[in-house]
């Protein structure tokens, strides 16, 4: 790890000011991904702004939204009574991620900003356009077992590894951001980017912008929800495919639905068309199968991830079944 300047402001403005204009400054919160990447030389910031002493860890309900501070810990949020009561999908997704120790370190803001686990991104001796623009995509013609089936480009086929973000995009969350040019709100679906020609940019945050909170509007998805995570061992592994499914069912009829997938794209993958296809239908396996068909339109696989073309729709069906408690 290279040496870096370390500052630990206690005020939000000071943190943003401390970021300065230097491109190689990073905010550090939990550090669970950034330090991992720094140890391997994948990221080499020359200045770290430790934001852990900022008062950004509150969880409050106000005017029909639940506001979760960016520094609230994954474990805290997962077990928070209001999260469990109002947004159980989020709690499930958080609990499916990482380990108990990491959830005690990782923050909500940091979780969103974690970087891909693509093998080629992680190894500085291999090509990766995300790490080193112009060096090529190692995964495209390489070992792409974990990689995207949606929204990729010929520059990058990496996937976003967060579980929490899959739930947040499904729940229509909004990200609250503060930066040198002031505050702004980003709909969760607009936070992460598709790789396109600039895979080095994971998100639409501008330099120096700090996520301060995420807000989730009240919704009817308090009961029929399920976060399904398919992975290569029973726990403590990144998803091959994950599905956040939320249904609002009345008299066995689906009144509203939310559906998103993880492990399939460069961003948490909201399935809006599939959601529409569910609304007004009976909560049956046949309905779910047809939604999965809709969801998979446009999916394309590479040499080693063709299994996802089957695993993804199956997981959608399974998650919806479990959300609806359909045997």
């Amino acid at each position: 790890m290279n040496q870096f300047q370390y500052v630990r402001p206690t005020k939000q403005k000071a943190a943003i000011d401390a970021f300065g204009r230097e491109a190689d400054t990073q905010f550090i919160a939990g550090g669970t991904n950034l330090l991992d990447l720094m140890k391997r030389g994948v990221m080499n910031p020359t200045k770290l702004v430790d934001i852990n002493r900022l008062p950004l860890d509150r969880i409050d309900r106000d005017k029909g939204t639940l506001l979760i501070g960016a520094l609230a810990l994954n474990s805290t949020v997962a077990e928070h009574p209001q999260v469990r009561q109002l947004h159980p999908l989020l709690g499930q997704a958080l609990s499916a991620g990482a380990s108990a120790q990491l959830r005690n370190m990782a923050t909500v803001g940091g979780n969103m900003l974690q970087r891909t686990r693509c093998y080629y991104f992680y190894d500085t001796a291999m090509p990766c356009n995300k790490r080193e623009p112009g060096s090529g995509c190692g995964a495209l013609e390489g070992y792409n077992r974990m990689h995207a089936i949606f929204g990729f480009s010929d520059k990058c086929i990496a996937v976003h590894p967060s579980d929490m973000s899959v739930a947040l995009v499904a729940l229509d969350a909004t990200v609250l951001v503060s930066g040198p040019k002031g505050d702004r709100r980003i709909p969760f679906g607009g936070l992460h980017r598709l790789p396109g020609d600039t895979p080095q940019r994971d998100t639409n945050l501008e330099p120096g912008e700090l996520i301060t909170a995420v807000s989730i509007p009240d919704n009817p998805f308090t009961k029929n929800v399920h976060y399904l995570k398919v992975r290569e061992r029973a726990s403590y592994a990144f998803a091959l495919v994950s599905v956040a499914a939320a249904l609002h069912i009345e008299n066995n009829v689906i009144r509203d639905a939310r559906l998103a997938m993880g492990g399939v794209a460069h961003k948490p993958w909201r399935l809006t068309e599939a959601e529409k296809s569910l609304i007004g239908k009976l909560a049956t396996e046949a309905t779910f199968r047809q939604a999965a068909d809709v969801a998979m339109q446009g999916a394309r696989a590479f040499k080693h991830n063709a299994y996802k073309l089957k695993m993804a729709p199956n997981s959608i069906i399974q998650a919806l079944k479990q959300a609806a408690a359909v045997a």
Binding site: Y6, R8, I28, G30, G31, T32, L35, D36, K39, R40, L48, D50, N52, S75, A98, S99, A100, Q101, L102, N104, M105
Partner: peptide, 29 residues
């Protein structure tokens, strides 16, 4: 492992279990 992937470095900070390999000492001041 030094990457938060094994738990061998688990300690308690203010009573909470964490991976001590993935936190800077100064962050725990």
């Amino acid at each position: 492992c030094d990457y938060g992937q094994c738990g061998a470095c688990t300690v308690h900070v203010d009573g909470q279990r964490i991976n001590s390999c993935l936190t800077l000492a100064v962050m725990q001041d």
